[in-house]
Write a protein that binds this DNA or RNA. Structure first.
Lengths: 203, 203
DNA sequence: TAATTCAGCTTACATCTGTACGCTATTTTA
DNA sequence: TAAAATAGCGTACAGATGTAAGCTGAATTA
């Protein structure tokens, strides 16, 4: 095994150890360097061979979480293309993601309102991706004017993320309920936006 | 000054010192007992004369924040009664609250997704108050059936809280923009819910 | 007035933290 | 093959943390 390869491997095990530590009771700002090192099976000081800081690791984790989220979007789009209804498919895909990648979504949710400006900004960037994509999609499928499509997309993303937050602490049964409710709420938003378009056209 | 009075006074200064510490870079789980004691001007060990734990202080802070929020609701209701539009008045009142009680709202927002189950539950309780009150209000003013009114209320509260989160990091100018946007989004929801009612009636 | 209560203090300690320094063994380069 | 680079380690230290133990002086009670 080459030196470079081994280094990447250790880096991976640090990242994965950190994700495992980020359960429902720990946030990025509450895990210590030593703790991560211990979980990764390296000496505390070896940590510095891979990250300058524990904050640098934090940003890496946010990036990785964002990446996972973007893959989720792609997956949802593929499913939508093969029929099933946009709202239904999107929400179901999202809920599956949350269930399967518990700690990943929790990280984003927590750092979204967390104590580090840098982390908050990083999460916001990821959410913005969602907004932009959903706005574009809405315009191209419904012909809504930009301002309305954008408001609609933003509202929908917020509602879905809020529902995701609820789902994190919920039982499997409650999760189904949360999913159903948010679907109905998304329909409210969609219909309300359509109506706003009609009103805008009448002026 | 009586002994009891003095004790209450010290307790107050602990609580207020803690609120001051909870700026944009600190959360309940990241402030230390010693730090709070220092800020309150007492010896670390004296803290225990007032709270069993720092967690007990945390719950007290969440309760106080919830109280402030409920007072806000009452204020909004009073303003609505004297005319001005429900959505407009509510959002404006909310935004004023956030601006004036920065750290109080931030606490609720942060602990809503925080690392302590107890804190999360405490915040959820406060949010539920909002939902119940708004649902009742909606039913009594629009005659919407319970299930729709409840979905609508929940969606509105989520959107307003999300907007509040944005407003926390925003400049005065951006805050106005956030307020305008969320008002439009709330109208989407309201109109969408009305439409759902009409559809439900047609069956 | 004398006895009791108790808010707040000082001292002390074990535990954890981040990180500086220098060593070693192995891979990479020349 | 000899020299250089480097991932990982052990040791060490200063600082912070929660909290136990016991004291003091002032307020309260009897």
């Amino acid at each position: 095994m080459s030196r470079q390869e081994q280094k990447l491997r250790t880096r991976r095990s640090i990242i994965e150890a950190a994700f495992l530590l980020l359960d429902e009771q720990r946030s990025l700002s509450s895990i210590s360097l030593r703790e991560v090192a211990r979980a990764a099976g390296i000496a505390p000081t070896s940590f510095y061979r891979h990250f300058k800081d524990i904050d640098e690791l934090g940003l890496t984790l946010v990036d990785e979480a964002g990446l996972a989220l973007r893959q989720l979007m792609r997956q949802a789009r593929a499913r939508i293309a093969s029929g099933g209804g946009v709202i239904n498919t999107s929400v179901d895909t999202f809920m599956e993601f949350i269930t399967a990648n518990n700690n990943v979504f929790r990280l984003l949710l927590r750092e979204h309102t967390g104590t580090s400006m840098a982390f908050r900004a990083a999460v916001l960037r990821e959410i913005k991706h969602f907004n932009v994509e959903l706005t574009d999609y809405t315009i191209s499928t419904t012909g809504l004017p930009y301002n309305i499509a954008n408001l609609q997309a933003e509202a929908m993303v917020k509602l879905v993320f809020s529902a995701g937050a609820e789902a994190l602490d919920a039982s499997e049964e409650q999760k189904l309920n949360v999913a159903e409710r948010v679907k109905l709420q998304l329909r409210f938003v969609v219909n309300g936006a359509l109506q706003a378009k009609a009103e805008q056209a009448n002026n």
